[in-house]
Design a protein around this nucleic acid. Structure first.
Length: 741
DNA sequence: GAGCACTGC
């Protein structure tokens, strides 16, 4: 009966033109069978464009049918249609990322109801490349029926019904539509990575689902924690899809290694001498360590080659994110050939950070060397500091690393720790990000999403109450939330900027100081990686180039100078000559454009103080103080040592700072916690501004006894002895009105 | 006189 075209109207399936020519004829939303989908896939007419399928489509379809996930289509359709939540467990190579959203399209028919299916990815490149692949598979134009949406680029149209996007992008959309009403199905892919955005989306979707029984939610994860996802989503059914990778044999060291770096290098050379051809991937923790290891491996491999003609050349290639893309590409170069006719073949070793664990895949890796460490972010709410520490990885991470050896053929993984350590000492999974970072932005986003009770929000893993408290405290001082914990109108605007709350606050107040154009540039420059290049061999030249931009009153002003100079000479050649990263500056310009649009959306004036006016830089520094008054340090004695306000941490200006006269009060962008405590990107400010713009925070009674408190008290005494001018009072009233608005 | 694990809006 379902296939009877004359009864199609009863089934709710809409048809365009002749019913019999519609491949989706007889499809009932969420009552679709595997047989129906297979028939439509094998048909000659594309059900979504009504055009005949191309020959390329047929070729791709044959390959799709060989994916492990294809065997599970019926299973998926059944669960999807029966249950509001579905958890999928699929290893790499299962095809879940490309196929499951397509099966969902057939089951859900979003295009007939002006709805969309969203599939989130933690990374932009993945969202783009998967969307491209799926558009090809469905024989449609990318950006039409199938599209993607990432920051700075929206490749969708009104026809789009399947949209790949970053998880952060979907979260942004939710802030303006907290029922996600444009979507009939949301698929969260790579959920095991537990990014901040995915974690919040999970909580949000679980809540929306109660009010939207029509919304379907699919959560796709790697093997390890599927049970946890099932339990969280009300005992959702689980669909398991096998992966398609090759076997990897794992070896452990019999005894713990004292020096993992030395041991790693030894292992790489051992593999080179004793094992069959095949490339090596070595995981280390950071740039310096990687460059160091590459140098040592190169030297030792050369000695080896000179000592014996049994060994071929070994080329070490570094890989980390701050490496220019051109040099990153070198990891795809083939291994070197023999150095002489009939000599032994060469080998390649890629020495990489965690970037090769998830973000980048290198084909041809047969051997993985895993010392078991990575740099991980940790947050200390007590002193409000985020820092990077080298720490043992999790078992999930170790298995992911090992899997990198089995992508093209059977491989080997050398773990530089004991099997007992693997079983007993390593955590099962990496701590989710939400437990490891400052939550100021997350709390602001949740407030904007309409979540009032942050403590009882249904987190999959709830953050420490103290971390949430710190975030609420900061937002309250910034006037983003009121004393009752409600989002203020100011807070609502702040949440609209893709920035940390301190930055959005200074941006919003900047028109009052007639410097919003400049603060826009500074906010953009603070949102990009360090633009100053400093190659080891040309440090003096690089420092000299930087000195040309340095502003003695603050590193923020130096960044502004760099941006202005770049806009006058916006080319790669000029950047190169001035030891600046062109890539970073292009990015800054992109960010600035985006922030500017948000300013315009909220009718915030884009203005500057007259260049040459003695207050040009003063105004900028005042606006900075309005956002960063909680990140201030006071000089103690004359040794150039500083104490942070209230927390009393001993810190020094970072050596890269251009501040030359150790000012009494400095505001800082970042607290870097290494051998010593450093404050990085600092600007000279006046305590009078702090007292004026943040009186609640600078309530002297709340300060611990010490030089900072005495210095503040002296300033207050001095001020109270002299009546304020009528002009100042008028200014303050005007500001108060703006703040209230 | 030192640093930047990795993403994302």
């Amino acid at each position: 009966m379902e296939s009877n075209p004359y009864l199609a109207h009863l089934n709710g399936a809409q048809t365009n033109g002749s019913a019999s020519s519609d491949p989706l004829n007889g499809f009932i939303q969420r009552k679709v069978t595997g047989a129906q989908v297979r028939k439509a896939l094998d048909g000659n007419v594309n059900p979504f464009t009504k055009r005949p399928f191309s020959s390329k489509y047929k070729d791709i379809l044959d390959r799709r049918k060989k994916l492990p996930v294809f065997q599970q289509m019926e299973g998926f359709l059944d669960m999807f249609q029966r249950s509001q939540f579905v958890v999928m467990e699929g290893e790499t190579g299962s095809g879940k990322t490309t196929q499951i959203p397509q099966y969902a399209v057939y089951a859900d028919l979003p295009h007939m109801r002006k709805k969309m299916i969203a599939c989130t990815q933690p990374r932009r490149v993945a969202a783009m490349s998967v969307a491209k692949r799926v558009a090809d598979e469905m024989d449609v134009q990318l950006g039409e029926e199938v599209g993607y949406s990432i920051r700075f680029e929206d490749a969708t149209s009104p026809r789009t019904f399947l949209k790949y996007m970053t998880d952060g992008m979907l979260l942004r959309e939710a802030m303006n539509d907290n029922m996600l009403s444009r979507y009939s199905t949301v698929i969260l892919d790579e959920a095991h990575e537990r990014t901040l955005a995915t974690d919040i989306l999970m909580g949000l979707l679980k809540d929306i689902a109660k009010r939207r029984p029509d919304l379907k939610i699919v959560v796709m994860s790697a093997t390890l924690d599927a049970k946890k996802f099932q339990a969280y989503f009300l005992d959702a059914p689980l669909l398991k899809v096998p992966g398609r990778t090759f076997d990897v044999s794992t070896f452990y060291t019999p005894e713990p290694e004292a020096d993992y770096l030395e041991s790693a290098i030894r292992t790489v050379l051992m593999i080179h001498q004793a094992e069959d051809p095949g490339d090596i991937l070595l995981f280390l923790t950071g740039e310096e360590e990687i460059e160091d290891a590459c140098r040592k491996i190169t030297i030792e491999a050369e000695q080896l080659q000179q000592s014996s003609n049994l060994f071929g050349p070994l080329v070490a290639t570094p890989l980390y994110s701050s490496l220019p893309p051109q040099q990153q590409q070198r990891i795809f170069d083939p291994a070197p050939g023999p150095t002489r006719p009939n000599g032994p073949p060469g080998r390649k070793v890629v020495v990489s950070t965690n970037i090769a664990e998830t973000s980048l895949t290198i084909d041809g890796i047969v051997y993985v060397v895993d010392p078991g460490f990575s740099k991980q972010k940790v947050y200390n709410p007590r002193i409000r500091v985020e820092s990077l520490l080298v720490a043992p990885i999790s078992r999930a991470s170790a298995n992911q690393r090992a899997g990198r050896a089995g992508r093209t053929r059977a491989g080997q993984c050398y773990r530089l720790y004991t099997e007992a350590a693997f079983v007993k000492d390593l955590e099962e999974t990496t701590y989710p990000e939400i437990l490891r970072c400052n939550l100021a932005n997350v709390v602001l986003e949740l407030k904007k999403l309409g979540v009032d009770d942050l403590v009882h929000f249904d987190y999959m893993d709830a953050p420490a109450p103290e971390t949430v408290m710190r975030a609420l405290e900061l937002l309250n001082y910034l006037k983003a939330i009121d004393d009752e914990g409600n989002l203020t109108p100011l807070g609502a605007i702040m949440a609209d900027f893709p920035l940390e709350p301190q930055l959005s606050k200074m941006l919003i107040v900047s028109p009052e100081f007639a410097c919003s154009n400049e603060i826009l540039s500074i906010a953009a420059m603070l949102s990009i990686p360090n633009p100053f290049l400093r190659p080891n061999s040309q440090r003096a030249e690089a420092d000299a180039a930087k000195a040309n931009f340095t502003h003695p009153e603050g590193d923020h002003l130096t960044l502004l100078n760099v941006y202005h100079a770049y806009k006058t000479n916006p080319d790669a050649q000029w950047c190169w000559q001035n030891y600046l990263s062109h890539r970073a500056l292009l990015q800054a310009d992109n960010v600035r454009t985006q922030l500017k649009r948000t300013m315009e959306k909220h009718d915030l004036d884009l203005i500057s103080t007259q260049w040459g006016d003695k207050n040009y830089y003063v105004n900028i520094r005042k606006a900075l103080a309005c956002g960063f008054f909680m990140q201030v340090a006071h000089r103690e004695g004359d040794k150039g040592s500083y104490l942070t306000i209230k927390d009393n941490q001993v810190v020094s200006l970072h050596p890269s700072s251009g501040l030359d006269n150790s000012p009494e009060w400095v505001l800082y962008n970042e607290f870097a916690f290494t051998k010593r405590n450093y404050i990085r990107t600092c600007t000279d400010i006046r305590a009078e501004w702090l007292l004026e713009f943040a009186p609640a925070y600078y309530n002297v009674a709340s300060f611990p006894e010490g030089e900072t408190k005495r210095a503040l008290s002296r300033i207050i005494m001095k001020k109270s002895g002299r009546p304020t001018t009528a002009g100042d009072e008028k200014e303050r009233k005007k500001k108060r009105r703006k703040d209230a608005a």
